[in-house]
Design a protein around this nucleic acid. Structure first.
Lengths: 206, 206
DNA sequence: AGGCAAACATACTACTGAGTATGCTGTCAA
DNA sequence: TTGACAGCATACTCAGTAGTATGTTTGCCT
């Protein structure tokens, strides 16, 4: 799963992150133990604690990676001189397949959206979660900008920007909640799904 | 908070559920301990274990109550001979304020949506979670029906029903993720918020 | 009055799970 | 060759937590 790397990372570390994302997704980040992650890897705790100083940092790096995935793909498809509608459509059509490609990571980061304030003990953990917060804000800003531009030129109807933005973001992440990859699903499924959600999102703004 | 009761319940038990919902919301249902809930109540564990056989059952009853809240308010506003659009609008305008009124409960039940398969040990817990599942399905069906009716009579555009339904449900629950009651917020805020989301939801379907 | 549950509080037990200390093994540079 | 370090495995410690067992009080019915 892990291929593109924004920050250089050893293959072993990436493998651990994949396993952690998978296990955290299945059992929940709190419920899952480090031993569970180790079992998924076919190794023991020692390997994990050799690369990560604590469970909190491991969780933080999983979330950070989730943010990196989309932040790497979506900005390049934004073309400043295109119509807001077309920009937003392309952003959504890029966002959704990328999210579903790296689904476990996003299922984990969504857990942290639902309240659960970290009891970040160590300074490193606080720092990482602050960075996640920053990347999240940056990602939101991409959508906020295109939204505001569209409202000004009349592409989108005028309404409370924050509410519209939050709703939009949740809408394009909706598949994270219910999508399960299936063997008998046609290759075009994700493309069609993305297209339908893009239509719904755009329609909700017009 | 707890006033309307679908199943008769002692005041003390309701008070425990309120506290549990609050604490589970803040710390996450897994992280939070029974002692945390007891501390929130200003009492001790004994009181909780007198009313609930296990933490799992306590969590299940919180979720069940969350489902009950909306399931009690929304069905009455559905009028079979009204237009699908108008029915759906009224459902949303009822759903959102009720959800925000009982916010902690819904923040807890949403945690369970995000993966986390219960390790329901006892039979009672499995039974309760099965009932939650049923109520959830029943609630979804309310929306699915009005959606399909609207697609047939042309009120709504034809598209994949499941995807549209899931997106719709997430959209009307979006405030659960970001809403925080504020002292300086005007009385009309929730009403306006609900109206905007209803507009967005309806627009996304047309 | 008095007894008898219900409704708690107190004081335990048993166990899980994060983190650590230390041991083992291959690899690579000097 | 060797030594030294990365990359793990093994075997612990210890704090926190679910659950229990047993007291103690309070209302309530007769």
């Amino acid at each position: 799963m892990a291929d593109t790397k924004l920050t250089a990372m050893s293959a072993s570390k990436a493998e651990i992150l994949d396993a952690a994302a998978e296990v955290f997704m299945r059992l929940g980040a709190d419920t899952a133990s480090i031993d569970d992650v180790a079992r998924q890897l076919g190794s023991t705790k020692g390997r994990i604690y050799h690369h990560f100083p604590s469970k909190g940092v491991l969780l933080a790096e999983v979330c950070l990676r989730a943010a990196d995935f989309v932040l790497q793909r979506v900005p390049p498809v934004i073309t400043p001189d295109a119509a807001p509608e077309e920009n937003l459509r392309q952003m959504i059509l890029t966002h959704i397949p990328e999210v579903l490609r790296t689904l476990p990571y996003h299922k984990v980061i969504i857990q942290s959206y639902v309240g659960v304030q970290q009891k970040s003990t160590t300074a490193l953990e606080r720092e990482l979660f602050a960075q996640i917060q920053l990347e999240r804000k940056a990602y939101e800003t991409l959508f906020r900008d295109v939204l505001q531009t569209g409202m000004q030129d009349g592409s989108f109807r005028a309404q409370n920007t924050s509410i519209a933005l939050q709703s939009l973001l949740l809408l394009i992440n909706a598949p994270v909640f219910w999508y399960h990859p299936r063997a008998d699903e046609p290759d075009s499924f994700i493309r069609d799904l993305s297209a339908q959600l893009a239509e719904m999102a755009l329609a909700s703004l017009r």
